[in-house]
């Protein structure tokens, strides 16, 4: 197995008095897709914000390529080759494709005071990179990003990260708002990035998507790393249960079914459902 690109040891993060992440240790390897799973509020977005320099961890250490590193800002993380597409897009709806592709790293032409943004080059490169990811509908770099579909926007963001030489690509729920076809396309793009030797960290709530592309899975439950395993080590049911926060979904479903049988097909009302769920919780 290859050396880890990124290694976290005992990373914790609190927002003021609320501790959100507890002693997370993780290794991220090149050419692998790490799926970060967990229920709403488990701390997935927080973990990747720490990874991408948005928040400094409260404690714990980072190593990049075996060397200790600290990220004080997203720029620091970027300099270490870590690119993040945050939840809900990460592109600029009213900017042109070319402009938004190069935000923060604008190509210029001309000299001295006449140095100016190279719109033509930016548009051409952006369109080329997006098309290289198989999105052939995009042909005009002057189009506004807001007119693209969700999948096309994800492709723009991923294409951008790849173009600027990211070796760790972090995607927060890139398939969340997408239809089946677009989601499949985004997964294919993720596999393409993986093939280039990029380490991909993928946050998702979708078991099918996770199992389709994941090499390595990490499950967060209430801010702790509850499970860390490789492809094939767990069944689909086990993963589903872990993602639901450790509650046995399958059993819960079975109980609902049993309830329905007893009550002539009637669905349990919320209070009763709660009781069923409580009954499921591991007594800690």
């Amino acid at each position: 197995m290859s050396e880890p690109l990124l290694k976290l040891t005992d990373v914790s993060k609190s927002y003021g008095a609320t501790a959100v992440l507890h002693d997370i240790s993780l290794e991220v390897r090149p050419g692998e897709v790490l799926c970060l799973l967990g229920d709403n509020g488990a701390g997935k977005s927080t973990l990747i914000k720490v990874l991408s320099g948005f928040h400094e961890p409260t404690s714990g250490t980072f190593e990049v390529d075996g060397k200790p590193a600290t990220f004080k800002s997203p720029r620091d993380a970027g300099e270490h080759g870590i690119a993040c597409v945050h939840q809900f897009g990460g592109t600029f709806p009213l900017m042109s494709i070319g402009r938004s592709f190069f935000v923060g790293a604008e190509p210029t032409k001309g000299w001295g005071p006449l140095r100016r943004f190279d719109r033509k080059f930016a548009g051409e490169v952006a369109v080329r990179e997006i098309r290289a990811l198989g999105i052939t509908r995009v042909t005009d770099g002057d189009r506004l990003v807001g007119g693209l579909s969700g999948g096309e926007r994800q492709a723009l963001a991923i294409g951008r990260a790849v173009y600027f030489g990211a070796n760790v690509l972090i995607l927060d729920e890139p398939t969340a708002a997408l239809g089946v076809k677009e989601a499949a396309h985004v997964l294919r793009i993720i596999m393409q990035a993986r093939q280039k030797g990029i380490a991909v960290i993928l946050v998702t709530h979708n078991v099918t998507h996770a199992m389709a592309v994941g090499d390595h899975f990490a499950v967060l439950i209430r801010g702790t790393l509850a499970a860390d395993f490789r492809k094939g080590e767990r069944t689909r049911e086990e993963i589903t249960d872990l993602m639901a926060g450790g509650e046995a979904m399958a059993e819960l479903e079975a109980e609902i079914e049993a309830y329905q049988r007893e009550h002539a097909g009637q669905v349990p009302d919320p209070a009763e459902l709660e009781q069923l769920a409580d009954h499921q919780k591991p007594t800690a």
Partner: peptide, 24 residues
């Protein structure tokens, strides 16, 4: 419209979080 700073301004107004992510 011509300098790179214009792009920064548009980006900051369009999506501050993403703008920060790109190092602006």
């Amino acid at each position: 419209h011509a300098s790179r700073y214009g792009n920064w301004i548009l980006a900051v107004g369009g999506d501050t979080v993403s703008a920060r992510a790109t190092g602006i």
